[in-house]
């Protein structure tokens, strides 16, 4: 079985930190089996910040100002939401080399309820100048993100799902393009991010059975967007569906919409994501997806309906 994204990332950070003692890892009382090795063997490079995210970012900033490469590890919503101003003032203003490692993208923490879910984080981090946002779809990518966040300057936000998913990519894949075309189709392009990439494959299969030929694109670097490649990719079918487990009004759909509008290209768009409302504990991710219309059947039929409309 492949690793979870979190473990793949942390294992690689451990390898990096063993060789570079300037690498520091901070956690706000959030653990992982893969973190235990780091804590035990690289004790001076690990800091338990307490359940105190504002100070975690402030301390990270101080460490980075002193020349260290810093990782902050947290459940996703508590990293951007509890300490957004600290991230803005230190990491964004001053372009410090600090990476927020956020586990629990979207509805990952399904039964924990909306306090533990990350439905706004892409919007928040996208608003910050200089921020790089990665959203992983598999563990190969997660491992590569460890290396990329270590070598590249500036602040980054890396978003991981909590669950395990089958790997999509082969080892040593180059992720510097920011997006990958995983399947080519004539009729439309589904741009998905995070675990919704896996959903997009299933949807594309369903669409195929209904005689709609869909491309599947994995958008794993949300900021900065690879604008040229993204527009090129979208232009092939001129019908673009965005698919994400994030609030619909502020995620990759609206981000890409802005890009398409600015480009002046004739590309029709539809956004599929989470309606701008909170659901209480609702019996798990599957049920949440059903409520939001994010299950395979609903996504497929929504795309099919939309295609019909466009043919009118």
């Amino acid at each position: 079985m492949n690793l979870s994204m979190r473990d793949a990332f942390l294992d690689e950070i451990y390898n990096i930190a063993r060789k570079d003692r300037q690498v520091m890892l901070l956690s706000n009382d959030f653990g992982a089996p893969s973190l235990d090795k780091f804590r035990a063997e690289l004790a001076t490079q690990f800091i338990h910040s307490g359940i105190a995210e504002q100070n975690m970012v402030n301390v990270a900033a101080g460490l980075a100002m002193a020349g260290k490469t810093v990782y902050m590890y947290s459940i996703a919503p508590f990293l951007p939401l509890r300490c957004y101003e600290q991230i803005r003032v230190h990491l964004s203003f001053r372009n410090l080399k600090v990476t927020g490692v956020a586990v629990g993208a979207g509805y990952s923490y399904d039964l924990s309820g909306p306090t533990h879910q990350a439905l706004e984080d892409i919007a928040m981090m996208n608003a910050l100048p200089g921020m790089t946002i990665y959203n992983a779809s598999d563990s190969v990518m997660a491992k590569a993100f460890a290396r990329m966040t270590y070598t590249d300057p500036g602040p980054k936000y890396v978003r991981f799902d909590r669950e395990k998913f089958p790997d999509i990519y082969r080892d040593n894949k180059d992720f510097s393009d920011g997006l990958a075309v995983l399947r080519e189709g004539r009729d439309l392009t589904i741009i998905a991010t995070g675990i919704m990439v896996h959903r997009a494959f299933s949807v594309a299969d369903e669409l195929k059975a209904r005689s709609i030929d869909a491309s599947v694109v994995d958008l794993f670097r949300i900021k900065p967007l690879n604008e040229r490649l993204l527009l090129e990719t979208a232009a092939t079918s001129r019908r673009l569906i965005t698919l994400e487990e994030h609030f619909i009004n502020s995620g990759i759909g609206s981000i890409i919409s802005g890009l398409v509008t600015e480009s002046g290209r004739d590309i029709k768009m539809k956004h599929i994501g989470i309606p701008n409302r909170y659901y209480s504990q609702a019996g798990g991710r599957k049920e949440l997806h059903r409520l939001c219309g994010l299950d395979v059947e609903r996504v497929t039929s929504r795309i099919q309906e939309w295609c019909k409309d466009k043919h009118k």
Binding site: N55, V59, G62, L63, K68
Partner: peptide, 9 residues
Amino acid sequence: GVGAGLALA
């Protein structure tokens, strides 16, 4: 907090 980070470093 930033000062604490600098001092710790």
